[in-house]
Amino acid sequence: MATNVFNQIPDYDLFKQNIIEGCNLKLASERGYFESDQIKELLDYFNSKPKKYSNMTMMGFFFKITLLAPTKRKVIASLKVGDFSEGFDYVTINGFEIKLLRALSLDIKNELEQINKNIQKEDLFFELFCGCKYSENIFNTPFYYALKEIGYDVPKDKDTFSVECIRNTAIVDLAINGVNPYLISRLIGLSLGGLDNLLTKFEVDIDEKVI
């Protein structure tokens, strides 16, 4: 019943920075991103429909949709069947209608046809392909094994790998290809300042692009 203080914050990035400085906290280290050849290897892997590990179909869809609409993991994980068009040609994310590649659309429809369930618009999309308890963190483990399968140097002390680098990869690609920073920030759910800080860490300059 308490007042939502976040509704009274005009600039979340500035609010967060003030908290960091006021409490003498360490800055969060930004996760990296993949090069184009690594993305191609992962796409080839997911297109081969690997069945060696569970949840890999789910991971493949998450990977491809995040590349098309690199918003926060929680937003992608919370997509419902109703967020997709009837023929799964489009998906609506953060107010944007994103066209899915024809091959991806066909793969989704083919996989859904194999599910023995009466699918409703309110159903969580990715949960339909999940064989265990579902949460936004479930993608890290299958992503780890996908990277391991293609020979990526994954950590040896844990069997998860953050999917944030997928989002970072797509954001960097949008910026490098000259997409208007304002549109990028709306799509990914970051302020222009937050987008600029992210790209600065990756040494991508958007100062000269029209905002």
Rank of each mutant, 00 (worst) to 15 (best):
G22I: 03
C23F: 15
N24L: 13
N24C: 11
L25A: 11
L25W: 12
L27N: 13
L27Y: 15
S29K: 09
S29Q: 15
E30M: 13
E30H: 05
Y33C: 00
Y33F: 14
E35S: 12
S36G: 01
I39A: 03
E41H: 09
L42T: 00
F46S: 08
F46P: 00
N47L: 03
K49D: 11
K51R: 12
K52E: 15
S54E: 05
N55I: 00
M56A: 08
T57I: 03
T57F: 14
G60V: 09
F62A: 02
F63T: 06
K64H: 08
K64T: 04
K64L: 14
K64C: 06
I65D: 00
L67H: 02
L67K: 04
P70Q: 05
P70H: 08
P70L: 02
T71C: 10
T71I: 08
K74S: 12
V75Y: 06
V75G: 04
V75I: 12
V75F: 06
I76A: 03
I76S: 05
A77D: 06
A77M: 00
A77R: 00
S78I: 08
K80P: 06
V81N: 05
G82W: 06
F84N: 00
F84E: 03
S85K: 01
Y90S: 07
V91A: 00
T92W: 07
T92S: 11
I93V: 10
N94L: 13
N94W: 14
G95W: 05
E97I: 12
L101I: 05
L101V: 08
A103D: 15
A103Q: 15
L104F: 03
L104D: 05
S105I: 03
L106F: 15
D107N: 14
I108K: 01
I108R: 08
K109G: 11
K109A: 14
K109D: 04
E111S: 13
E111G: 03
E111L: 07
L112C: 10
E113G: 12
K117G: 03
K117F: 12
